[in-house]
Design a protein around this nucleic acid. Structure first.
Lengths: 331, 331
DNA sequence: AACATTTTCGCAAACGTTTGCGGCAAAGTA
DNA sequence: TACTTTGCCGCAAACGTTTGCGAAAATGTT
């Protein structure tokens, strides 16, 4: 794209120098009000738009963040992206979106794209298969803050923003206990992921605090379909499951599919509770009770952390978003 | 970000000129194989990454597309975005994401951001409130192709990529007729939008072809909640609705909420069919039959059109994605 | 009147690439 | 041997901004 107006064309027309035009548009105190007004009027008339490529080249300072997620088409990620975009635009930053498909090799290729575009900062949800995060840490050598979110590495010395996993799990367990559930099926995510481990540990501990009177069976599902099958397998006349905990929206969709297939009444025949951002739970009647794990809130918090990093904060932080319990009608 | 390696540093180390280094890295035929090899080895050793700002400034040619949607958090849009990202990365393009919230003023502000970033092309789903598309057409003056998708303006002379609205509606109507539905409730989207008009017209016409034996009641819902209320209002003992057509995923979620609230059996008590990308229909059991309106396919087609525009195609096109019927168990 | 200070503007280098064009040495040809 | 052609490389302008520093005119002070 080649717009017609440049600083040079404006300077030629006004018979002043390019640097005066540049400073006038930036409201530099050295430039008189009269000159500033002339310049701004003509810039508007000529539809002048500064060229961010020239600015970034000269100042060595881009105004672009990258968000790298396994898939954009994910309920949690796109609300995160939406929140970050809302904040970014307030500060004159743009967002570049890169998908990795959860493939470490594509993550590395994406980092290369980030270097080529001289991005100012990176928000990344790593894939389950990602073990080596050195490539991400090397971005710090280039003064590019990297904020890990959602699926964060277990490595300590990096900036992380995530749901308060243990607390969210504890809230869910508390709710089940308060509703006198005695035979609980907990379906968790990928056992390799730290968020799964943390939530499982916290959930189990809270249930165990009640002594032996509560039966907890835990399973892992990586897909909605896997969750659906687990429900079919576990909910038999011999196994008196009275409540199911779903660790994610995806698992919830599979569980609810099975519940409909088995023509179970919620909450009479089975209680349901999930970790969710609220969209899926509200599709059903009665509405599913859930512990809110909001991508949107995470996005806001992640943006704040990025701002702090860009403003010079060098200490590493792991920030968490607390969850709240939203009572539906499923328990 | 300031990476350490530049063409100059590489040239200093190898005692050759910057232009030789640049040409060697670009595999220019004037440069000997021996020199090319030396340069490439050192570039890799020094972690050289070209600076896209410098390249774009010099060549006046950016490699960034913008996608502008009302909200990222929309089932249709994020699958479109995902598809475009998959294509873009194959051709070395990056994606910038901008939300407009459906607000024409923010759309205009977003176009300004596009000009400042010298984007190579724009994919846009305009908001319902957007009437004046001149600001978008002015981007053509700057040689920036604009592809309207999904919510496209009725204005003729612009590139559009959308679902074959009439055909999708006709398919749905055909399916209802083939299933001998006699009292149909059709819930459509915003009556102001052209996609609604087209689908309503085609749907009504197909039903009307059957003469007076088929009763069709049509309603408009702008939200899931509005759709839910319509169902509560329309499904009374006095009104023998035997099937509901939902024009979008959002409408489907509201309809299904009401169906659950009314404890209606699908398909025994009520038949359901929707225009959908397939995610929502598969959450229910029996699965909802739907006419696939895939954001992913639209994204692929839109990218092809953008490539054609960038390669010099100057004629205006309106491309459509044909839909296919996916049979579930709801009819 | 002479000198000092302030106001307002301009010069040109710089950022990191690309690329038209020219130069030099080697190779080819008559 | 003399001239032509080819291979391979280098010079430096260009892109559109920013900005350190200096200059000239206006204003202030003694």
């Amino acid at each position: 794209m080649k717009p017609k107006a440049t600083l040079k064309k404006i300077s030629d027309k006004l018979q002043i120098s390019i640097s005066t035009v540049s400073r006038a548009l930036k409201n530099h105190p050295d430039i008189s009000e009269h000159t500033k007004q002339k310049v701004k009027e003509l810039a508007e008339l000529m539809d002048y738009e500064p060229n961010n490529y020239a600015i970034s080249l000269r100042t060595n300072n881009s105004k672009v963040f990258c968000i790298m997620v396994p898939q954009i088409s994910n309920l949690f990620y796109h609300s995160f992206i939406s929140a970050v975009e809302e904040e970014a635009r307030l500060y004159g930053f743009s967002l570049m979106i890169l998908q990795s498909g959860g493939d470490p090799a594509i993550e590395i290729a994406n980092l290369k794209i980030c270097r080529q575009n001289r991005v100012a900062g990176i928000f990344v949800a790593i894939g389950t298969a990602t073990i080596d995060i050195q490539p991400f840490l090397k971005m710090d050598d280039l003064d590019v803050p990297v904020i890990f979110f959602d699926k964060v590495p277990s490595f300590q010395a990096c900036n992380k923003v995530c749901i308060a996993d243990a607390k969210a799990a504890t809230i869910a367990a508390d709710v089940l206990l308060r509703n006198n559930k005695k035979n609980i099926l907990g379906i968790f995510g990928d056992p390799e992921m730290s968020i799964t481990k943390k939530r499982l540990d916290a959930f189990s501990q809270k249930i165990a605090e009640k002594g032996k009177s509560i039966q907890l069976k835990t399973k892992h599902a990586l897909t909605a379909e896997a969750a659906r099958k687990i429900v079919h397998k576990c909910l038999t006349p011999l196994q008196k499951i009275d409540a199911i905990f779903c660790m994610s929206d995806e698992i919830l969709t599979g569980v609810m599919k099975a519940v409909q297939e088995l023509k179970l009444k919620v909450p009479e025949s089975i209680g349901i509770i999930a970790h969710s951002n609220g969209f899926i739970p509200n599709l059903y009647s009665p509405e599913i009770s859930y512990v809110e794990t909001s991508g949107h809130k995470l996005g806001k918090l992640a943006y704040n952390r990025m701002s702090a990093c860009l403003s010079g904060s060098t200490f590493i932080q792991e920030l968490t978003v607390e969850s709240i319990y939203i009572e539906g009608g499923s328990l």
